[in-house]
Write a protein that binds this DNA or RNA. Structure first.
Lengths: 197, 197
DNA sequence: GGAATTGATGACCAAATGGACAAGAACTGG
DNA sequence: CCAGTTCTTGTCCATTTGGTCATCAATTCC
């Protein structure tokens, strides 16, 4: 019924949806703690299919991380750009980590942060994706800072952005260790209070 | 020659010095990426001796993490407590992560942060050590904030401390991914500029 | 319908994993 | 010297690891 453009047996699974499953595993547990058997069990596929589709374990991790960057990170950036008062958007940006951990019960934190701790030292490609993600966030925050106060110099806007993203990363990490919520909220509020405008 | 208080064959290695070696391994690579064979090779001991001295792998990790908390973290706290100008001490506190990564070439970051990303979700004991370490840091920073401005309310001092420690964690994580140094320095300076007093 | 191509399956593998254990070595106290 | 105790060593083990491969199944093109 479905039309195939390519010869050969068609793939029996959605390669992107399955990558989301893999992403969820690596995101939660990290690289080494996830075995191929885990991935096979979670996806319902055999190892052979996984290798054929994504490459070896490291390639799977990289693709999962890149998908996080293109998905979750991009969504965060879109929210920064997207409608609403600039200040409210920055508020939401820094509140996201707290809400995710304490309201939504999502203890996984930020995949970029986890990857930095987990793989950056041994996998330059992973480190590059992490950097790219954070840099894109910084640029997006800098744009919001410029909205907040158009008189801001680009350097100052960049500095504000760096401070916000650093706080974001810190909140994500501390939330993963289930630090006291009040502490994280206090940190969030101090950063927001120091915003220009 | 040496006097033994306990009967039985004396231990042939320094249990604390060896724990430092184990700590270095877990600190750099994380829990899963370090095998007992790695530990045996790095310490020069056999697995049997390691198990007898420290317990299983998880116990080794916990002891290594606790030793980091009692060593590196305590040293950081001691530096916060004096001597020197309060503001300069906070400066040094937030500059430490940057100097470690970019001047000393130590890319390991903060063991507490790594443990948060690596083990907090699966090992409540590890999470507890991480929390305890960060909380002690927060208290120490709060004390410095109070020094900075004695009129500060305890709540405000705590909020300043939370912001500083969050920034510290963020810097540590971003440094592990080798983010642009200028970016981290800008973040550091913004936090310092927002200090009371 | 038949060749060609591609995906799926399950068996298979060498190596590494965390861990257990018995035997021996080094010490203390009597 | 002898027990009692503790540490060390080497060996052993079941399981798991990441990864490969031949075989089979499903599809396209001619």
């Amino acid at each position: 019924m479905r039309e195939h453009r390519t010869p050969g047996r068609p793939r029996g699974f959605d390669i992107e949806a399955t990558l989301d499953v893999i992403k969820a595993l690596f995101w939660e547990r990290g690289f080494e703690a996830v075995s191929l058997a885990d991935i096979a069990a979670a996806t319902g596929l055999r190892k052979g299919s996984l290798y054929a589709a994504y490459g070896d374990k490291q390639a799977m991790y990289l693709k999962a991380l890149a998908r996080y960057e293109a998905g979750e990170v991009a969504a965060t950036i879109a929210a920064l750009q997207g409608p609403g008062e600039p200040r409210a958007r920055l508020q939401a940006f820094l509140d996201g980590p707290i809400r995710a951990a304490y309201d939504a019960g999502d203890g996984r934190g930020c995949f970029l942060c986890n990857a930095a701790a987990d793989r950056a030292l041994v996998d330059p490609d992973a480190a590059a994706i992490v950097r790219a993600g954070f840099e894109r966030m910084e640029q997006a925050v800098a744009a919001v800072a410029a909205e907040l106060d158009p008189a801001l110099s680009p350097e100052t806007a960049a500095a504000v952005a760096a401070a916000c993203v650093t706080a974001y990363a810190g909140l994500r990490v501390l939330a993963r260790a289930e630090m006291a919520r009040a502490s994280l909220e206090a940190a969030r509020d101090r950063v927001l209070a120091a915003l220009p405008g």
